[in-house]
Amino acid sequence: MLKGNFFRGLGYLGQGFRLIQQPGLRLFVIIPLVINILLFGLLFYFLGEMFTVLIDGAMNMLPDWAWLQSLDWLFWLLYGVVIVLMLAYGFVIVANLIGSPFYGYLAELTEKHLTGQEVNTDESWGQIIRDIPRSLWREVQKIVYYLPRALALFVIGLVPVVNIVAAVLWFLFNSWMMALQYVDYPADNHRVSFPDLRRSLAGARLSALGFGLPVALAAMVPVLNLIVVPAAVCGAAAFWVRENQSD
């Protein structure tokens, strides 16, 4: 039986957008935002150059069956959604690799703002620098978890008819990954291992999917995806505080 509260999960991203407006959190929003603007420019260029190529390549893999040719618009749409989801999460991966030390500290400050309690007594820039190797390793763990599952879904998506189901699975998987991606920041601040985090979120899967769904949607929207990352970090801190109090 799935546990958690899907609708409660939906509210955490909105809470994150409100939190990033707090004066004490703004600096650690502005720095990643500048990084995201630069990355978005590169992604937009890559998307413009590669989208048609990727779509044509996927369409060419379809069998030459007459009834399939009449549905080429549907497959074009499905492949388009999958490719955009892949690129959106690719943007998130790269943005988080670069900004992970700032995001960990942003999650810490957000939790302190919400609870009034210290998470880590060392609040220096030196601590942020010392945390870089650990933060990068956590990002690598998430990539290693993501890639084989993404590859399996991509292969399934190449199978005619089955790819309709694969598109839905892709969206659910991306929502799950967004929850894992961002709740990992407050979890890491509490020294919760990545495998333990996965088990914890699995115990509140509906809440996790509710949180990850709007993040996945926002990551696909130009301009909005520039600010959704720090908002999602703050929302994840709120998720951590609230869901750890709810059974």
Rank of each mutant, 00 (worst) to 15 (best):
S70P: 01
L62Y: 09
S193L: 04
I129Q: 12
L224D: 09
L47P: 03
D247E: 15
Q69V: 07
F211N: 08
W76Y: 12
A66V: 15
N5Y: 07
F17S: 01
F6T: 12
F102A: 08
E123H: 07
N120G: 10
F7G: 11
L180I: 04
F239M: 04
D131K: 15
N120Q: 14
P23F: 07
F102N: 04
E123I: 09
V223E: 02
R18I: 04
G11D: 02
E108A: 11
V233P: 00
A95Q: 08
L38V: 05
V29T: 09
F91N: 07
M59Q: 04
Q181E: 14
N96Q: 14
G9T: 12
G9V: 12
I132E: 15
G212A: 09
I164D: 14
N163S: 13
S200D: 15
V94W: 06
F194Y: 15
G11Y: 05
E49R: 00
A187C: 12
R242I: 01
D72I: 12
E111P: 12
P148L: 13
Q127P: 09
A232P: 02
W125E: 11
G16Q: 00
V223G: 06
V159R: 01
L213A: 11
P222K: 00
S246V: 14
Y89Q: 06
Q141H: 14
V84M: 06
E49M: 01
I30D: 08
P230I: 12
L25R: 00
F102W: 13
G203Y: 05
G210K: 02
N5Q: 03
Y105C: 03
S175D: 02
M178C: 14
W176E: 01
Y12E: 01
N36A: 08
V155K: 07
G48E: 03
R134L: 13
W125G: 13
R138S: 10
L54Y: 07
G57H: 10
L77V: 10
V241S: 04
G4Q: 08
D196T: 12
G157T: 09
L201H: 01
I132A: 13
R138N: 09
W76I: 11
V215A: 10
R134W: 15
G16V: 00
N174K: 10
D184H: 11
A179T: 05
D184I: 03
I93R: 07
L47C: 11
